[in-house]
């Protein structure tokens, strides 16, 4: 990072490069935060569903349950995401009056 951001020269192509670098870094941090959040939520909810009585190790049926649960949680996430985006754009573009 130091070599990228700490240089004393500030010629235009250099600045351009640093700008793009910074944008990419911001996007990456956001993507990582989003993935972490999804993983945490999956673990929270699937643990609750699949590991009802923790024993000395995960059984194979618990692991199978976790595997299925992960897939289903991600499907639920996609569904919710679709519904929410559709609703927000509906509210924003003119049909809000119907709700009143």
């Amino acid at each position: 990072m130091a070599s990228l951001f700490g240089g004393s020269t500030s010629s235009s192509p250099d600045m351009q490069q640093r700008k793009e670098q910074m944008k990419m870094q911001i996007q990456q941090e956001l993507a990582v935060a989003n993935a972490q959040q999804l993983i945490n939520k999956i673990n929270e909810n699937c643990f609750e569903k699949c590991i009802t009585r923790p024993s000395t190790s995960l059984s194979s049926s618990e692991e199978q349950c976790l595997g299925r649960c992960m897939t289903l949680y991600m499907a639920a996430f996609d569904q919710v995401s679709k519904s929410y985006v559709a609703r927000v754009s509906k509210e924003r573009f003119g049909q809000a009056d119907q709700l009143q």
């Binding site: 999804l38 939520k41 949680y73 996430f77 919710v80 995401s81 929410y84 985006v85």
Partner: peptide, 14 residues
Amino acid sequence: LQATVHELTNTCWK
């Protein structure tokens, strides 16, 4: 937006 979707997914899942 992503945070909202996470919260809603959690609520709807439960």
